[in-house]
């Protein structure tokens, strides 16, 4: 545990700025995620190996009473995923504070990460960091064969969905029998893998938790990187930044059409003392 983070966490717990801290600690075998609430326990916190904490942070905060605040000691990818959850309105603004542990070069290479430390951020295409072995899955002429061989191994455990930090719908289309046929193994790749990838495409931060969690070893990160690369190329959008998703239209996504001004609202809004 870096001294800087440890001091910060002690101070935050002392001042009651956060209710709890989520981080890694030594388990019986390797590292396990753990929630710390006391200042004395902070010594047990570990920087640890890379561990998918994004979904755990989401679950933890939802299980805590309203108004709780959580600090998470995590990697850059998880901090970006938590930013995406915040953008999706999963919890109030600034309910989660991320204390980022930057990844070293070796880990960044392993994850094909284009954003391993918080500061070396914007302007990098997510596809740029892909290793040649993964790139072949997106560029070879008979890649449908490669994908077929990988996707035939799928055992439909839903691990990729469950571990994904930005996959937070209350109802999942992957459980809809009209899209994914129950008891059919392996599942049809189009309405299973592609559908899942498309649903999280604009929130995917490329953390690789789906791929690391897959017991069949399907290279799902390549698919996600391809989609993130597309959004970056078309709209300059990177998930985890404050930019709005190009797939969602809101006030910040103008349609180019003139809207009438509802100044008076025919007296409806004016009666409530509102002007717009």
């Amino acid at each position: 545990m870096s001294a800087l983070h440890a001091d910060k966490i002690r101070a935050m717990l002392d001042e009651n700025a956060v209710t709890a801290v989520l981080g890694l600690a030594d388990g019986v075998e390797g590292h396990i995620p753990r929630i710390f609430t006391g200042v004395a326990e902070v010594d047990k916190l570990k920087d640890g190996p890379k561990y998918p904490l994004g979904k755990i942070a989401w679950r933890t905060l939802r299980a805590m009473p309203p108004g709780s605040r959580l600090a998470v000691v995590c990697r850059t990818c998880d901090s970006r995923a938590i930013r995406e959850q915040e953008k999706m309105g999963q919890f109030p603004q600034r309910a989660v504070t991320c204390l980022v542990v930057p990844c070293d070069t070796e880990q960044a290479l392993k994850c094909s990460c284009s954003w391993p430390a918080p500061e070396q951020a914007q302007g990098k295409n997510p596809v740029a960091g892909l290793a040649a072995g993964i790139r072949v899955l997106l560029e070879s002429a008979d890649r449908a064969w490669l994908w077929r061989e990988h996707m035939q191994r799928c055992i439909k455990c839903y691990g990729c969905r469950n571990v994904c930090p930005v996959c937070v719908c209350p109802e999942c289309r992957l459980e809809d029998p009209s899209f994914v046929r129950p008891a059919a193994l392996p599942p049809s790749p189009l309405p299973y893998h592609l559908l899942r990838a498309l649903h999280v495409a604009d929130h995917c931060v490329g953390c690789g938790a789906c791929q690391d969690g897959c017991p069949a070893g399907i290279p799902l990160l390549a698919l996600h990187k391809a989609l993130s690369g597309h959004l970056f190329g078309e709209a300059g959008y990177l998930a985890g930044t404050d930019a709005p998703s190009p797939l969602r239209r809101g006030p910040s996504h103008p349609t180019g059409e003139d809207r009438p001004e509802w100044k008076n609202c025919y007296g409806i809004c004016a009666s409530k003392g509102e002007n717009s």
Binding site: A144, W147, L198, L223, L227, L247
Partner: peptide
């Protein structure tokens, strides 16, 4: 159109 472009990129990625 934006969504379908993304779908098209996904199909392209897996070789369809």
């Amino acid at each position: 159109h934006t969504r379908l472009q993304l779908l098209s990129a996904a199909l392209e990625a897996v070789g369809i």
